[in-house]
Design a protein around this nucleic acid. Structure first.
Lengths: 294, 294
DNA sequence: TCAAAAGTGTTGAGTATACACCCATGT
DNA sequence: ACATGGGTGTATACTCAACACTTTTGA
C-alpha cells in the first residue's frame, strides 16, 4: 500500500491529462410537475396537467427554440451538483427529487461541438418552482405534455425482426405547440432485444431534447408504481384523488378509483386533516407512508 | 428556419469550445457471465457461478489492483461505441448486450484528474468472450461474485430518518479474493427518498469500481424479471434448469422449480431438441419467445 | 436399482378487475 | 334537491408460494 503511493505520486506528476481529447459535459434536466387548471364550476375539482419546464433559447444555436434547462459541469462538481445548481438558477427550485436518466453522447447532437449530455429527471410540485416571470434573461415556461403511441408495426429486414413504435410528443403552452415524432425500435434478432430511440420529426424543440424528453417520460411511467415517484409531485398532505390524478395524468389513462385505492393503500397514512368547502363531501388528507419502500 | 441557420453558422465559427473546462470521459464495463464449474459426480449437473470480468492494472495508479475493463471515449465516438470497442479489445467479445448503468462523476474518483465514468452493464455467455490467456499485456480474469446484505439499521439524525444497509461484496478467482463493504443509505426525510451508495472499505479493487459493481448487481437483480435479461447470459438453446440457475446465481437465492417454470412459461418456446447422456432424464431445450417482451 | 434431475398437480392465500352502491357536502 | 366527488363492498378471475408427487434416464 505504501509502495503503491510512493510510485504513484511520481507517476501522477508526469501524467498529463490533456494528452487525450475531451468532450464538454453538460447536465440537462427534464423537470416535471403537475399543474392545476382553473375551473369555473364550484363543484368540480380543477383538472390536472402533466407539465414540463422548457427554456426559450436567447442565443445560437437553436435561437428561439425551446430547450431543456441545463448547463455545463464545472471543475470540482459532480453532474448531480450541476443539475441542482442549474435548476436553482433557472427555475428557483432547491429541494427537488433528481435521478439520472441516461447519458446522450451522439457526436453530432450539438452543433457547437462535442458535448455529452448527462440527463436528469426532476420531480417537484409546482409551488417549489419560482420561475421569475419578470426576468427576461431566462424565459422559462411550463408546457402541458401529451405523449401517445400512435403506431406499431413489425418489420422484417434481412431475417431481422424489428418492432417499430411511433410516439407523438406534444408540448403546449397557451397557444404555442411544440411537437416531435419519436420512433422506438426494438430489435428482436437473436437473443438481443436492443431498443433505440430516434427523432423522426421535431418542431420547435432544440437539439436532441425531444429524444431526452421521450426517455424521461417512458422512465417515469415505468417507475411510477415501483418507486412511488408520484409523491414527489404532491405536497406533504394530499387527498387520494390528488394521488390518483397524478397517476392518471402521467400515465395518460383513467383508473378505477376503488381499485386504485386498494393498490396504494399501504403506501399512504391517513391523517386527521380534512379538505372542506369544495361543494361536495370533504376528503381526508393523507401522507406518504415512510415505512413502506419499494 | 432559414434565418436560424444563417445566423447560426457565423455564431458557431466564433464559438470556442475550449473556453470551458472539460473532464475526460471514460466508459467502464461491468461484464457479467455465468461460468459452469467442474463436477465429478456423473449424475450431478455442474454448478453455475455468477462471474465478473476484471483486469489487473499494469500501471499507476492502482498498479496491481483489479479494475473494470474500460477506456477513454474518443472523438467522434458515442460512449456506447467506446464500450463495444473496449470490450472487443480487452475481452475479445463482439455481439454483447450493453446498457448504461449510471454516470459517476465524483471529482476525486480518479487520482489522475477529472475523469467522469459512464458505466455499462454487459451481459453475454462465457463462450462469447475470448480472454487471450497468452497475452500478458492484458491480464483479464473471471471473478466469482457474492453480494449479500449483512446489516440493516435505522438511524435518526436531527429529525432525519435514514436506513443504512451494508452489503458485502466478494470477488474470487482461484485463491485470490477481493472484497468491499458498500453502505446504501436511504434518506426518508420529508417526501424525498434519496439513495446513496458509499464504499466503506475496499480491498484490491481499483478506483471507485466497487461502487460501480454494486450499482450494476443491484440493477441486474431488479431487472432480471422485468427485462428478461437472463436470456443474455444463456445460449440460444437452453434447458429450463439452466434458466433457473441463472436466476438463482444472480439473485443469490434458491427458487422453487414448479413455481419458477410457471412464471417464465410464456417467455420461452419449447423445441424438439433434447439434452441426453447426463445420467438422468433428458431435458427439453427451449428458446426465448421473441413475441413476448417485458 | 437408484440417485439425480425433469416435470406436473393441488391447495389455500392473496390480488386484480370491473361494477354497483351508499355517503356527505355546499350552493 | 342534487350534482359532484368521497368512499366501500362484492363477485370473478387470475396469480403466487409451498409442497407433494410422478417420470425418465444412465452407470
Amino acid at each position: 500500500m505504501e509502495l503503491k503511493h510512493k510510485d504513484e505520486s511520481s507517476f501522477l506528476t508526469a501524467y498529463n491529462q490533456s494528452d487525450y481529447d475531451r468532450p464538454s459535459l453538460a447536465a440537462d434536466m427534464v423537470a416535471f410537475t403537475i399543474i392545476s387548471k382553473e375551473t369555473k364550476d364550484y363543484r368540480k375539482l380543477p383538472e390536472k396537467a402533466f407539465s414540463l419546464l422548457l427554456i426559450k433559447r436567447g442565443e445560437h444555436p437553436y435561437m428561439n427554440f425551446w430547450a431543456l434547462p441545463g448547463g455545463f459541469v464545472r471543475t470540482g462538481e459532480t453532474v448531480e451538483a450541476t443539475a441542482y445548481r442549474e435548476l436553482e438558477e433557472e427555475a428557483g427550485v432547491t429541494d427537488i427529487c433528481l435521478s439520472q436518466i441516461h447519458c446522450f453522447s451522439e457526436p453530432k447532437r450539438d452543433p457547437r461541438g462535442w458535448i455529452v449530455s448527462c440527463s436528469f429527471m426532476a420531480l417537484a410540485e409546482e409551488e417549489q418552482y419560482h420561475l421569475n416571470p419578470g426576468d427576461d434573461a431566462v424565459d422559462a415556461k411550463w408546457f402541458n405534455i401529451t405523449y401517445d403511441l400512435i403506431d406499431t408495426k413489425t418489420e422484417e429486414i434481412a431475417n431481422k425482426q424489428v418492432i417499430k413504435k411511433q410516439y407523438q410528443l406534444q408540448l403546449c403552452h397557451l397557444d404555442l405547440t411544440l411537437s416531435a415524432l419519436i420512433e422506438v425500435s426494438i430489435d428482436l434478432s437473436s437473443k438481443r432485444h436492443k431498443i433505440t430511440y430516434d427523432i423522426r420529426k421535431t418542431e420547435g424543440i432544440a437539439f436532441d431534447h425531444a429524444k431526452i424528453i421521450a426517455y424521461a417520460i417512458s422512465q417515469l411511467r415505468e417507475n411510477l408504481n415501483t418507486s412511488m415517484l408520484a409523491f414527489e409531485l404532491l405536497p406533504d398532505y394530499f387527498t387520494l384523488t390528488d394521488l390518483q390524478q397524478v397517476y392518471e395524468t402521467v400515465l395518460g389513462e383513467e383508473l378505477i378509483t376503488a381499485n386504485f385505492r386498494r393498490k396504494i393503500a399501504d403506501y399512504v397514512v391517513e391523517t386527521e386533516k380534512r379538505v372542506e368547502g369544495q361543494g361536495h363531501r370533504p376528503s381526508k388528507l393523507y401522507q406518504r407512508n415512510v415505512e413502506k419502500r419499494m
